[in-house]
Simulated scan of single mutants.
Amino acid sequence: MNRRARLIGPEEESRFDAFIAGHPKGHFLQSYGWGEVKATTGWRPLRLVLEEGDRIVAAASLLKRRLPYIGRSILYAPRGPVVDFHNGELFDELLKAIDEVARQEGAILLKIDPDIPDEDEAVKGMLRAKGFRLANKGEGFEGVQPRHVFRLDITPQPEELLARMHGKTRYNIRLAQKKGVVIKDDCTLDDLPVFYELLKETTLRDRFLVRSYSYFVTMWREMVERGYAKLFLAYYQGEAIAGTLAFIMGDKAWYLYGASGNRHRNVMPNYLLQWAMILWARERGCTLYDFRGVPGKLDEDNPLYGLYRFKKGFGGVFTTFIGEYDRVYSPFYYWLWQSAIPLYSRGFRRLLFWRKKAREGAAVEA
């Protein structure tokens, strides 16, 4: 078949996103807007399409990043590429086009982590046959994207979805409603600082890092204003006590960011927020709701069991993806990137630390 591959520009954004949204393996991380978000963090987005006549049949949003010290780059297709992985001919043509982009951009590798279930041995075998190697086993949160998620089929009626939930989850949703928790789902950019303050409170409590406020402003501009994301805030007695950001692409929705304050957690706003997002996704025509990452199946002694139990309670299916696969273009530079540069960087940071200590000691003696 006569197909051609080419990189596209912003004038074809809507056409690109329409293909991503309509494909069974489409994902918001492959959208045009998400590439614009990542462009503010050191990545350069490249959008590649494979066309048959005037119709897109496969695509990839590739993020390029230059590597320190060696003057080369990597390519990463988050939750991509968007192609029928069981169509060998189509995949080969798209991969050939990606390889050419990699050559032009001086890439040492292509990293992919597609939305393919781990039990799909045919795809895993095909990737190995094409020279891909499993980059990590992703047993926890160490992958770029979570390997383990809970996913919920939201095609049943709301009453049936509630009936399928764990009894405690259903109880907590109704408790929040009974206590008077109100969900604001018509948020504007003026509400973003409220959410960000809750997010900072969450990170201090749970000890993880948060991106800058400007990053979330960019996300608002590139995703919320495009209709691919929505902010929800939970209020109790007039006070914002929790918030979430949900993303949507085609018939799928994802829960990406959650935040909660330290006050009034006993009124269970997070449960009602999830229910509000599920109902919103159904109203938008979605059939699948993705709760995103959990650290694998855990026993109750694990400190992360609470997160696992919270998401599991909504009745979703525990899903494991195939993980990250690397297609290596330069074995030497790949080894350098994986082994030598991290060792050098750690050693360099230690050297700077001890030099600083030495200067401080000298200043004290003086």
Score class of each variant (00 low, 15 high):
286 C>Q: 08
63 L>M: 12
342 P>C: 11
11 E>Y: 02
323 G>T: 00
258 G>V: 02
351 L>E: 05
365 E>Y: 06
224 V>W: 14
226 R>C: 05
166 H>G: 11
36 E>A: 09
234 A>N: 14
104 Q>L: 00
231 L>M: 05
163 A>V: 03
74 I>T: 13
43 W>D: 01
207 R>I: 07
289 Y>P: 09
37 V>S: 07
299 D>N: 10
63 L>Y: 10
8 I>K: 06
138 G>F: 02
285 G>F: 09
47 R>I: 02
239 E>A: 07
178 K>N: 08
255 Y>I: 08
102 A>D: 04
266 N>C: 04
305 Y>D: 03
175 L>W: 10
15 R>F: 01
192 L>C: 14
133 R>I: 14
259 A>D: 02
336 L>F: 08
172 N>V: 01
359 R>W: 15
61 S>C: 14
105 E>V: 00
267 V>E: 08
41 T>L: 10
126 M>P: 03
15 R>K: 04
37 V>N: 02
64 K>Q: 12
133 R>Q: 14
128 R>W: 09
290 D>Q: 08
316 G>L: 09
5 A>N: 07
219 M>P: 03
356 K>R: 15
22 G>L: 06
217 V>I: 15
364 V>D: 13
326 D>E: 12
236 Y>S: 10
315 G>C: 04
163 A>Y: 00
98 I>Y: 02
11 E>R: 12
267 V>D: 11
18 A>N: 11
354 W>Y: 15
80 G>P: 08
335 W>Q: 03
282 R>V: 04
364 V>A: 13
174 R>H: 09
362 A>N: 07
139 E>R: 13
70 I>F: 01
116 I>M: 04
124 K>W: 04
256 L>T: 15
234 A>M: 14
13 E>L: 13
220 W>Q: 11
151 R>N: 04
150 F>D: 14
268 M>G: 07
84 D>K: 07
295 P>D: 07
344 Y>G: 07
222 E>G: 02
